[in-house]
Design a protein around this nucleic acid. Sequence first.
RNA 1: GAUUGUGUAGCUCAGCUGGAUAGAGCGACCGCCUCCUAAGCGGUAGGCCAGCGGUUCGAAUCCGCUCACGAUCACCA
Length: 581
Amino acid sequence: MDYKDLIATNLSECTGLDKEQVLGLIEIPPKLELGDYAFPCFVLAKTLHKAPPMIANELKDSPELVKGFDGAVTVDTAGPYINFRIDKGILAKSVISEIIEAGDQYGNKNIGEGKNVIIEFSSPNIAKPFHVGHAFTTILGNSLSNIYSRLGYNVIRFNHLGDYGTQFGKLITAYRLWGDEAAMQENPIDELTRIYVKFHDECKVSSEREKELEDTARDNFRKLEEGEPEEVALWKRFRDLSLDVFEKTYKRMGIRFDNYNGESFYSSRIDSVVNMLEEKGLLEESEGAKVVKLDDEGLPPCLVVKSDGTTIYASRDLAAILYRHEEFNFYKNIYVVGLPQQLHFKQVFAVLKKAGYDFADDCVHVGFGLLKFKDNTAFSTRAGNIIKLDEFLDKATEKTAEIIRKNSELRGGDMTDEQIAQVSEVVGLGAVTYTYLKSGREKDIYFDWSDMLDFEGDTAPYLIYTYARIKSILRKAADQGLTGSVENADKLTAEDEYAVIRSLADFNDAVIKAAESYEPFMISRQIALIARNFNRFYNNSRILNADSDEIRDARLKLCEAVADCLKSGLDMLGIGVVEKM
RNA sequence: GAUUGUGUAGCUCAGCUGGAUAGAGCGACCGCCUCCUAAGCGGUAGGCCAGCGGUUCGAAUCCGCUCACGAUCACCA
């Protein structure tokens, strides 16, 4: 039962306001004691020429307000607010039943049925190490993909690989000069990084040497573009080997892609884009280059063709959008790319719009903050201060294993080494993932080992721990032949129980908001609230030894519902759960 | 310089389509395991919501200015 919706319907009838508008105005009171939903009467003050508290008082008693509730709601006022309190027992039973039925798919909807959503994320550069900075787009994009899938959209996950450009001319050159085949097999990224750095170091030796190397590199890139078999083979090898390494990390994190079309894929389609812009008369000469002027949009001109006649990333992105539209007729085309590229995307979308493609409006740039150190220095491959993602994951996993081993020993050593290893992997990775998704995405993240490896409070381990704790109770119950029952769930009206139920009920809204605002943290916040509420309840109440069998069975179902909801929410974030830790 | 973002508790962050006493987590301090996992729970301390002005019955929230820090501003992506 959607009580909020029913309240909105009734209010709309009583006040003559549009239902959608009412829905937007209904809020959740700041304190649980005040009720479940509140309607502020300020908007009516102007039309009715009365003070809001008076309006609230007059509306409160109209019978239309409680129509369809069958006594499940009481209405009060507090100053200018009309507060609706759903009968706690009825709410409890309704929410728990709904969750038990949905299981760990609680929160799913079918609002996206038949709509294609492209989400581009991760997009690492070939031959470069995958560090904790790249993890942001990867984790955020994966979570958004999960969320949109759960809402019924047909999500197509794009990994727009950085697999093209002049650096490949350099890599081919460097490989022929200094490449070590054994090292290449062993750890391709490290080896490619090594020779790439060596190339640049060598350039510093003398200007003659630099010119010689740069010329060779340029020549090699030209050959690559022209499809010379040897150069193409090398490029393909670099790409394949790098991709193998990336895939390992993706697999470890449970992330998959549907499409690996990188820059190289679109490069062949650029000419037609340039021609199209030319035909539409949008291209203008400027300082030897070709640009699309965007003055009417208040944007600087978008550079499409460089003065040397070659193309640039804007043209590649334009080609990509046209291809994607043609191929997938997307409902939304989402770019999970860092905030620094905001202007670039604005320009690209504006050019598209100017060229008459209305689907430019369906393209969105989902930006996110930077990862940096406490002293404000940024990560950079050049500065050599990067932290590889795998290193981060390993550290988190090790730390987790230590804690689990200790706790397991306290319980008499109830876990094998193998179990501990499996559980640590899930919990450790979850901890890392959660640190990227616990705050608004536009916030910069400050990397600090001790903060990152602190597993108390608002962290994934806390949430998984809560889940495991519940599972432990449910196992014990099952041993006694108990599975609980929703029959008497309406008896769960104590303050602690109510807080849990209220937060479970709000989970659905949180998922929708997360999708609408591209903010997975709406979900992480909600499940953190649920876990906190549950832990308080758990601390104050007996479940298996409750005062009566009815209460015990009802509480067991409440536990199950919390576990289902936590699992569902964590899964949307890309985080797994464990049955025991 | 232009555009743009940020500034809320010691730290990390919510709250920002104006509205009920500005909320969490960490850290600090004080408590809670004869009882379902203490990665837990309870409590205390901690705020001129950067500053000034304006709009409003009402501003952390909207507008203007100032200060501080960051990002972007064409031939890298």
